[in-house]
Simulated assay, not measured.
Amino acid sequence: MKFKTTPYHLDLLKDEDRLSAFFEAISEYDGNTDLAYDLGCGSGVLSYFLKDKFDEIISIEINKKTYDCAKDNLAVFDNIEVVNSDVLEYEFTKKADLIVCEMLDTALIDEEEVPILNHVRKFLKKNGKIIPQGIINTAELVNLERHNIHWDEGVNYEVFSKPLVFCELDFLDEINPEVEVDMSLKATKEGLINGLKITSFTKLNDNLIVGPLPMLNPPLLIPLDEKEIKVNDLINVNLKYIMGNGIESIQTQYY
């Protein structure tokens, strides 16, 4: 099927690994199939994947141009209703068996996945499921060429520690969007560090975890003050941010 899209959503559709992962997760869904919500449905491709499984799908998109694309793309399917609304303002009247919400970004900092799910989770049935199911975040010490917060696409950096898992979230749980973690990262080589690399792994279901992809959570590089380190040094870093409040909310310091 050919999809009408905005330029941004065309890039999402071109990321075949991302699409394949979500298609697999939806295909493996084995719960009840009365109603699914697709929150922030974009061009409607995930609703398209859901169409043969569910009696009813409500797909919500806030952006009018993107909504128009989804409305056209899904018009032939009688079991899909496409709504132009902010999810936080939409009047939910029914509980769903499945919520699909792909408002993802590295560590969930720059997208509204957590605020949206905290709002909508009460409209999920008792044994309902969410796709994706959760996220795992890791941190590494790095030396950066650039001294501002940026993603790792097309930039050079050197890694000075093994990944440390600092946060694991299950989207079925109520989540505090304010994150503050103290991390002790062990240096694996000698040199100068001046940043953190944050990597997110998306848990789509119990059997499927997806690492960073071009259009799914590319690693985030965050500056730190410069520090000379030696092998096996423990570097203590405090990291703060607010999920859904953007990269401007990020704060780091040694302790």
Results as ranks from 00 to 15, higher is better:
Ile136Ala: 04
Leu224Trp: 08
Leu239Pro: 11
Lys64Met: 03
Thr66Arg: 05
Glu190Val: 09
Asn143Pro: 00
Asp152Ala: 14
Pro115Thr: 07
Val114Ile: 15
His9Val: 00
Asp78Ser: 15
Phe23Lys: 09
Leu74Trp: 05
Ile175Leu: 13
Leu196His: 06
Asp173Met: 12
Val82Ile: 10
Lys53Gln: 11
Asp72His: 10
Gly31Tyr: 11
Pro132Ala: 12
Glu190Phe: 01
Gly246Pro: 06
Ala21Ser: 15
Val120Cys: 03
Ile26Thr: 08
Cys101Phe: 02
Leu35Ser: 05
Gln251Met: 13
Pro7Thr: 09
Ile175Gly: 03
Tyr90Cys: 03
Ala139Asn: 08
Leu224Asn: 08
Val210Gly: 01
Ile235Met: 10
Thr6Gly: 11
Ala187Ile: 05
Asn137His: 10
Ile222Phe: 04
Thr33Gly: 01
Gly42Met: 01
Glu140Leu: 09
Leu13Tyr: 07
Glu145Tyr: 14
Glu112Leu: 14
Glu145Ala: 12
Thr202Ala: 09
Lys126Asn: 15
Val83Ser: 08
Lys95Asp: 07
Asn236Thr: 13
Glu153Gly: 02
Asp152Glu: 14
Ala25Leu: 04
Phe92Trp: 11
Gly40Met: 00
Ala139Gly: 10
Ile235Leu: 12
Ile229Trp: 03
Tyr37Gln: 02
Ile62Phe: 04
Tyr29Val: 04
Gly31Glu: 15
Glu91Asn: 14
Lys14His: 10
Leu39Phe: 03
Val87Glu: 00
Ala75Ile: 11
Cys41Leu: 04
Leu185Trp: 02
Phe201Glu: 06
Leu98His: 00
Tyr29Asp: 08
Ala75Asn: 07
Asn238Tyr: 06
Pro214Lys: 11
Lys95Ser: 09
Leu164Ala: 10
Asn143Leu: 11
Asn127His: 15
Asp68Tyr: 04
Glu153Met: 06
Ile26Cys: 05
Leu46Gln: 02
Lys4Pro: 01
Asp173Arg: 14
Glu226Tyr: 07
Asp110Ile: 01
Thr138Cys: 12
Lys240Ile: 07
Asn236Leu: 13
Ser161Thr: 08
Met215Glu: 05
Leu117Met: 13
